[in-house]
Structure formats: C-alpha cells, structure tokens
Simulated assay, not measured.
Amino acid sequence: MRIVIADDAVLLRAGLEHLLTEAGHEVVAAVGDATTLLSAVREHRPDLAVVDVRMPPTFTDEGVRAATLIRSQDPEVALVVLSQYVEERYASELIADSPRGLGYVLKDRVADVEDFLGVVEEVGSGGTRLDPEVVQQIFVRSRRRRTLEGLTPREREVLALMAQGRSNQAIAETLFVSPGSVEKHISSLLTKLDLPPVDGENRRVMAVLRYLESEEK
C-alpha cells in the first residue's frame, strides 16, 4: 500500500516508516503536523494514512480533526489513528458514518509489530480494528447515555439543577414544586441510573457525574 504517516514524534515517525517499508509498503510522506498531513493526502492520494490524534500546534485534537476531514473528503483513504490514551469520543466521531477502513489503536500496541502490521493490512483492505479498551469505553458511554434517555423531562431538569450544585430546597423553588416532590424525583432518577445505596459512595455525586458525561460533546 501507499501510506502517509503523520506524527509529531520524530523517532516514532521514523520507526513507523522503517517498519512499514520493511513490510513491503511504500511510505509516500512522513509529516509532523495536521496541515502538512492534509497537503500530503491531497498530493499523493495514498491508500492509507497513519495519524496521531494530538499534533501541533496545541497538541489536543488536530490530528483526529484532520482524519475526520480526510474521511469526509476522500472516504477511499483508509485511516489508522494512533492515540496515547483512550479517547473514545474521537473514535465515536470517526465511526459515526461508517467504520469501513478504520483503525483506532493505542500507541503502546505498536510495540507488537506483528499485530500492528495486521491492523494496517486489515484496515487497508477495508476492515475495522478498534483497540479493545476503546470499544469498552464506547460501550460504557453509550450505555450511560441510554440510561439518561430513560429519565422523564422533569427528572432531567432536577438532575441538571443538581449538577449546578442546587440543594433540594433550591431545586423546589426553581421548579415551583414541593421539597417532597423533589425528593421523589431524585429517588426515581437514582434508581433509573442504577445507583443503589452503597456504603462510602455518594449517589448524588455519581448521578451528577453521569449527567456531565452525557453532556460532553
């Protein structure tokens, strides 16, 4: 395959280039930032791009944003995304339209040369390979979102106010209901969120964390 590599770490970039070349692939470009990556893909029209999630200048999500743009502009280019940590939101965004020709791998997996080359071959052939840890995180996030969808509109209002740090009395005053009614809504939503009483665990805090996770973009 004809491959473009994008990673700001010079040693890793060189290592990947050597590894892929030894495996019989042609590395047509090896770059260190997202802007140059996009230019290289336009120029060389590779079969596959290996892209780091975080690259200059801010080292946040430049790489994955470039990968998303490549996927929308030229879906025939397969993508293997490398990440230092599990960042399932990025993986979810990439597979939203189609998982075909997509790999999302944690960087420490690259040390297993045979496995990494297998990922490249499979993804380049139109397959999908997601790191097991990423799959688990996507599943957990999806399950929590589905659980929140089971709340009534009033329960979501109560939970949103809880997330703002409001007391039961303050929530009651805001929603023009009685404190007893607020307590019933809280009890109901805690049950629906599968947060039974557990020693040493603050159910209210856990519920707020679930809410905040569901609101992340």
Rank of each mutant, 00 (worst) to 15 (best):
D33Q: 01
R109W: 00
L148D: 03
E87Y: 05
L48D: 14
A111M: 04
Q136M: 11
D52K: 06
E17N: 14
A170G: 10
T35P: 02
F176Y: 10
R2V: 04
R129E: 04
V64P: 02
P196A: 11
A96Q: 02
T35C: 11
R210P: 00
L11P: 02
V177H: 02
G124D: 06
A96I: 02
K192R: 15
P153E: 08
S72T: 08
R45E: 11
V80C: 05
I171P: 01
V119K: 03
H25G: 10
P46F: 11
T36I: 08
P46A: 10
V177N: 02
K107G: 07
L37A: 05
L69D: 14
D112K: 13
V28S: 05
M162W: 03
R89Y: 05
L11C: 05
R144C: 00
G150W: 05
R89F: 06
L37E: 04
R13E: 09
F59M: 04
P196N: 10
R129I: 06
A30W: 10
T68H: 15
L38M: 05
A29D: 14
V51R: 14
L148H: 06
L159G: 01
P197G: 13
I186A: 01
E88I: 03
N168L: 02
S214F: 09
G150N: 09
L117S: 10
G118Q: 10
V50E: 05
D74M: 14
E201S: 02
K217D: 11
F139H: 10
D52Q: 04
E26C: 09
V64T: 07
A34H: 08
I70M: 15
I138Q: 02
G101A: 12
I186Y: 01
Y85E: 15
V41G: 08
E149G: 09
K107L: 08
S167W: 02
L69Y: 09
P196Q: 11
F59T: 00
E76L: 07
G165C: 01
E173H: 12
A66C: 10
F176I: 00
N168G: 06
P132M: 04
L38F: 00
A14C: 04
G32F: 04
L161H: 02
G200V: 12
E43G: 13
A160V: 08
E213N: 04
R144P: 00
E133D: 15
I171R: 00
E173L: 13
A111H: 06
D108F: 08
A160F: 11
L94Q: 10
A91C: 14
V50P: 03
A160M: 13
E22N: 05
E88C: 08
M1Y: 09
G126Q: 12
E22D: 07
N202A: 02
I70A: 15
E133V: 13
V134P: 04
A49S: 11
T60H: 05
V123N: 05
F139I: 12
M206Y: 07
M1I: 12
A172R: 01
I138F: 01
K217T: 09
H18G: 14
V53I: 13
P153G: 12
S188V: 07
L82N: 07
P56L: 11
V110S: 07
T152H: 04
H44G: 13
V51N: 12
V119A: 04
L148E: 06
L38T: 01
D112C: 13
I186W: 03
V120S: 12
L94I: 11
F116Q: 10
V120H: 08
E201R: 02
